[in-house]
Simulated assay, not measured.
Amino acid sequence: MNLKVSIHQPHYLPWAPYIYKIIRSDVFVFLDDVQFDCSDYQHRNYISKGRNRLLLTIPVRHEHTFVNINESKIVNLYWKKKHLKSIFQFYNQTLSNSLCK
C-alpha cells in the first residue's frame, strides 16, 4: 500500500494549491516546530480582488530572535474580529465598485 504523505508549514489564509495538497494527501503534517519567519506567510497574508490588495497580519510577539512557529505568542486577542471586518468591508467595497461601473 502506498500512502501519500505531505508536509507543510502552517500559513495564514492558505491559497488554493495548499488546500489541494492537503486534500490529495493520505497523511498531512503541519510542520510547526521549525523557525518562525516574520517575513513569511505564517502570520500574515494578502486578500485581493483584481488589482486591489490588503495585507492582514496576526500580531505576534517573541521572547527571543530564534523561535519556532509553535512557540509564537499572539499579542492582541481582537485580531480575528478586526480581520473578519476588514475582509467583509474589502470585498463588499470591491464588489460595490465593480457593480457601479
Rank of each mutant, 00 (worst) to 15 (best):
S25A: 15
N68M: 09
L3E: 07
H83A: 01
L55N: 05
I19N: 06
A16Q: 13
C100Y: 07
V27T: 09
F28T: 00
N97E: 14
R44G: 03
P10W: 01
I47R: 05
I7R: 12
V60D: 00
N68A: 11
A16N: 11
S98Q: 12
D33G: 07
V75H: 01
D37T: 07
L77F: 05
N97W: 05
D37I: 13
Y41C: 07
K4E: 03
S48H: 11
L95G: 04
Q35D: 14
D33Y: 12
L31C: 11
L56S: 00
H62G: 13
I58V: 12
I47M: 03
K21G: 03
Q35V: 10
F66E: 14
V67G: 01
N76F: 01
L99G: 02
F30M: 15
L95S: 10
L84Y: 08
W15I: 12
L84C: 09
F88I: 10
D37A: 13
W79T: 02
R53A: 07
A16H: 10
V29D: 06
D40T: 04
Y20I: 13
S72C: 14
Q42A: 05
S6L: 03
Y12W: 07
E63V: 09
V60A: 01
Y12F: 15
K49N: 11
K21L: 09
I23W: 08
H43R: 02
K21V: 00
L54A: 00
T57D: 06
C100S: 14
Q93E: 14
P10I: 02
P17G: 05
L55V: 06
K85V: 05
Y78P: 02
C38K: 13
I69A: 03
T94Y: 01
Q35W: 09
N92K: 11
S96R: 11
Y20M: 11
D32H: 08
D33R: 12
Q35S: 13
K82F: 02
W79L: 00
H11K: 11
F66R: 15
T57S: 12
K4Q: 03
S6W: 02
R53L: 10
Y18C: 06
D32W: 00
S72I: 12
P17N: 07
Y20C: 10
I23T: 08
F88G: 03
K80P: 00
S6C: 14
F30S: 08
N45H: 06
K82L: 04
N68H: 10
K80I: 04
H83C: 05
F36S: 03
P17Q: 02
S48W: 06
K81G: 04
E63L: 12
I47E: 00
L31Y: 14
V75G: 00
L84W: 06
K101I: 09
S96W: 05
Y18T: 05
Y46E: 09
Q35F: 07
S39D: 15
D32G: 10
S6M: 11
I58S: 00
S25H: 04
P17A: 05
V29W: 05
V27P: 04
H62E: 14
C100W: 07
I47N: 02
W15V: 11
N70S: 08
D32S: 13
V60G: 00
N52C: 07
